[in-house]
C-alpha cells in the first residue's frame, strides 16, 4: 500500500479530473466538466470528449497540485483510471499519468473506475469500513456488491439492460429537458406529485432478486407522454418527472436494503452519478435508519465522476514500480464479473 500523497487522474468520460489524496484525506479535487460541450448532441460524444481532455488535463493537474500545496516531486505515486470508459478519453489520462510518473520517477497505480466509485466511501469523513453493501448507479452502470475486503468487491446484482442513469437521461429527454438530464429532472420533480402516475418497476412478476431492469420504465413514460398529448404532457410535466424519478430510484434503495438483509451486513453505501440524486439519497437514508443500518452517502461531488475516488481506490491497487508501467494500456471494458482492484 502506498503511503504519502497520491496524484490521481480521471478522464474516462466527460469530466477531466485530478486530485491529491493522502491516506483517507482529500487534499484537493478539481473537476473540469464538459457537459456544456456535449449538450448540442444530447449526450456524450466520445471524440469530442477525447479532444477536450487533451486541452485540459495538464491545467487540471497543475491546479490539483497547487491546491494541495505540493509539487509533483512531493507525491508518492501517480494513479489513473485505466478502465472502463471511452477508450479515446481514457488514453489521454493514461498517457498523461504514465509520462508524469515516468518523468518524476514515481510508481504508477492503475485503477478501475467502478472501484473508484465504491471507494468514495473509504474517504474521510465517511471513512467506512467493511463489511457493507455498495450500490453504484450511474449513466453506464447499476450494480450491487458485497464489500468484505476493499480490494475485492463481490457482485450481488446488476442491471439486465439499461443503467439507472441512462433511464434518467432518456426520461428527461422525453420530457423535453436539456442535457444533462439528471439535475434538470430532479429540479422539475420537486414541484410534482410522485404518486400521480405509476410506471412499471423493472422485473415485476419475477421473484424478488438483486438485479435491475430499466428498459420497461422509459417505454412506459413514452406511452404515457403519447397518451397525454403535447398539451397534456406540458401541463403534467412536473408530476410525470416526479413519478418517473420515483420509478427509477426507488428500486435502487429497495434492492440495496434487500441486499443488506440477505448478506447480514450492518452498513450500506451508495456511489455513482445517480447517487447525487436528492430523492435517492433521501430514500436510502430513511430506509437505512429505519433498519438501524449505518449509511455512507458521499458528498455529491464525490458521487459524480471525480479523481479523489480514483486516489482512494489507488490505495488498494498494486503499485507498479518505475518504469515497469511504460507498456501498460487503457481498456474500454472491465473484465466480466467483479470490480477488480
Amino acid at each position: 500500500m502506498i503511503t504519502g500523497p497520491v496524484l490521481a487522474i480521471e478522464t474516462s468520460c466527460d469530466e477531466t479530473a485530478a486530485a491529491v489524496v493522502e491516506g483517507r484525506v482529500v487534499r484537493s479535487s478539481v473537476v473540469a466538466s464538459q457537459a456544456d460541450l456535449h449538450a448540442p448532441y444530447g449526450g456524450v460524444v466520445p471524440e469530442v470528449a477525447a479532444r477536450h481532455h487533451i486541452g485540459t488535463v495538464n491545467a487540471v493537474v497543475d491546479r490539483a497540485l497547487a491546491e494541495a500545496g505540493l509539487r509533483l516531486a512531493d507525491t508518492a505515486a501517480v494513479a489513473v483510471t485505466r478502465r472502463p470508459g471511452l477508450i479515446g478519453a481514457l488514453l489521454v489520462g493514461v498517457a498523461t499519468a504514465k509520462a508524469l510518473a515516468y518523468a518524476a520517477r514515481k510508481p504508477l497505480l492503475m485503477v478501475d473506475h467502478l472501484h473508484g466509485h465504491v471507494c468514495a466511501s473509504w474517504l474521510a469523513p465517511l471513512a467506512l469500513d467493511p463489511p457493507f453493501v455498495s450500490l453504484i448507479a450511474s449513466g453506464g452502470h447499476t450494480r450491487l456488491d458485497l464489500v468484505r475486503d476493499w480490494r475485492a468487491p463481490e457482485p450481488l446484482g446488476q442491471t439486465l439492460d439499461d443503467a439507472a442513469g441512462e433511464a434518467i437521461d432518456k426520461g428527461a429527454r422525453l420530457l423535453g429537458l436539456p442535457y444533462p438530464g439528471g439535475p434538470a429532472l430532479e429540479r422539475l420533480a420537486r414541484d410534482g406529485d410522485r404518486d400521480a402516475f405509476t410506471f412499471p418497476v423493472g422485473l415485476a412478476g419475477r421473484p424478488p432478486g438483486l438485479d435491475f431492469s430499466y428498459a420497461g420504465v422509459k417505454t412506459a413514460l413514452l406511452y404515457r407522454v403519447r397518451e397525454l398529448g403535447e398539451a397534456g404532457t406540458a401541463e403534467r410535466r412536473a408530476d410525470l418527472a416526479a413519478s418517473y424519478q420515483e420509478a427509477v430510484v426507488r428500486p435502487l434503495a429497495d434492492r440495496l436494503m434487500r441486499a443488506a438483509e440477505r448478506t447480514g451486513v450492518t452498513a450500506v453505501a451508495i456511489g455513482g452519478g445517480v447517487a447525487a440524486n436528492g430523492r435517492l439519497r433521501e430514500l436510502v437514508r430513511a430506509a437505512a435508519e429505519a433498519r438501524g443500518l449505518r449509511v455512507a452517502i458521499p458528498d455529491r461531488a464525490l458521487c459524480t465522476d471525480n479523481a479523489a475516488m480514483i486516489g482512494a481506490a489507488a490505495h488498494f491497487a498494486d503499485p507498479v514500480p518505475w518504469p515497469d508501467y511504460l507498456a501498460l494500456d487503457a481498456m474500454a471494458t472491465a473484465p466480466p464479473g467483479g470490480i477488480a482492484a
Binding site: R51, V57, N58, L72, V92, A95, T96, K98, A99, A103
Partner: peptide, 14 residues
C-alpha cells in the same frame, strides 16, 4: 493524442 499527451506531461513534469 497519445503522442501529444505524452509530450505535454513530460514537459509538465520536467
Amino acid at each position: 493524442r497519445i503522442g501529444i499527451a505524452t509530450a505535454l506531461a513530460l514537459g509538465q513534469a520536467l
